[in-house]
């Protein structure tokens, strides 16, 4: 463990707390893409199946359980409890175009052709594009509530911080995982224009308005 990975995981934890708090407090999931949340649940389910087979640490187990529970709780809020506030018309990204290529790529490019390894690889590839429906929805509505943009900033920062973790681990332990690194860079790059808008607008107290 290193400070970059710890900050990354905390940033991820803060993101899911912000999201759940926003939905619960405002009793509304307006502006939130249910499709992205479905993809995140898929990502964590595929990646954290090893919870039953390998024990890494209390921290590792605790965080995996938190991310699994929060992703399913968010789906429950969006599609059941507060489904009246779910903006279905603006959440139209075709997620099958993200899932199928991730499955194919995981079957073709992986470290080891075993069940858990291919699932892990699938989850890494899918996570790199899982935010697209959410970013697409923000671009369609042309704006995002500031709490939603704080959520996106924290979520985007998590994998960005992991890049520093991978650099650190390569330099200090000669350890690297090219699949996680490439996917993590793609994932972080997808947030770049949002990061720019967040820093130039939201931090100045303006609403996040995307050029329509």
């Amino acid at each position: 463990m290193n400070v970059f990975r710890l900050l990354g995981d905390l940033s991820h934890l803060i993101a899911v707390i912000i999201l759940l708090q926003k939905i619960w407090h405002t009793r509304s999931c307006a502006g939130i893409s249910g499709k992205s949340q479905v993809l995140f649940a898929l990502v964590y389910t595929a990646r954290y199946l090893d919870l039953v087979s390998t024990y890494v640490s209390l921290y590792n187990t605790f965080m995996k359980v938190i991310f699994l529970i929060s992703s399913y709780a968010t789906i429950y809020f969006i599609y059941m409890k507060f489904r009246a506030t779910y903006d279905r018309n603006h959440d139209t990204f075709r997620i099958e175009f993200l899932i199928l290529p991730s499955v194919l790529l995981a079957l073709l490019i992986n470290h080891q052709f075993s069940f858990l390894e291919v699932l892990w690889t699938f989850s890494i590839y899918l996570e790199s594009v899982a935010i697209l429906p959410q970013l697409f929805m923000v671009s369609k509505t042309g704006e995002a509530e500031s709490i939603t943009s704080h959520y996106l900033f924290a979520l985007g920062s998590y994998r960005g911080l992991y890049i520093f973790n991978w650099i650190y681990r390569y330099w200090s332990e000669q350890h690297y995982d090219i699949i996680a690194i490439v996917a993590g860079v793609v994932q972080t790059v997808l947030y770049c224009d949002f990061f720019y808008l967040y820093v130039t607008k939201v931090l100045k107290g303006k609403k996040l308005q995307l050029p329509a």
């Binding site: 390998t54 890494v56 470290h111």
Partner: peptide
């Protein structure tokens, strides 16, 4: 080395 040992990252 690629990451065949136990995966310790989230």
């Amino acid at each position: 080395t690629n990451d065949n040992d136990v995966k310790d990252e989230l």
